[in-house]
Amino acid sequence: MSNVITDKDGVKRYLITLHVNGDEHTILVKGNTTLTNALRDQLDLTGTKRGCELGDCGSCTVLFDGRPINSCMKLAVEAEGHDIVTIEGVAANGELDAIQQSMINHAAVQCGYCTPGMVLSAKALLTRNPHPTEPEVREAIAGNLCRCTGYVHIVEAVLAASRGDLIPDDAKHTMAGGAK
């Protein structure tokens, strides 16, 4: 491991380099700093949420070498040398990812606290399996707890994104002669 700095109380801090959203960030962390806290408190990437902090709720989900993990269950010092994607890294060139646009189209966001993790789990699924079935979508987001929506709109949003169906519902109604 890289540089270690010991303070007057004997607590060690480690100079580590994290590869996040395509950029390299060199930061100083303690041995017990979680990846969640390093991302939020040091890199200002506050889209990664602190929820249960015990690996149950999925609001701190990030992609770790392309796979979703709970960043609250990973030490920052253990994340060195791995490719990390947070919700801030999903929209490319200022344009929302299909999943993000679809979540808006389907009103799949209520309080929004679970949404970053939900989008990242869905992103990992569609990268590996571009045309999932509904049960596959439900399984992929099983580790992301939403207490607002009942998941129906979220599942519909992911399935629509997988079909490339990104026309907002309202626009669809207008084109079809308009229900409202």
Binding site: G55, P68, I69, M73, A124, A142, G143
Partner: peptide
């Protein structure tokens, strides 16, 4: 045994 975020860890 657990959700994806845990089975990956």
């Amino acid at each position: 045994m657990a959700n994806t975020q845990i089975t990956n860890i």
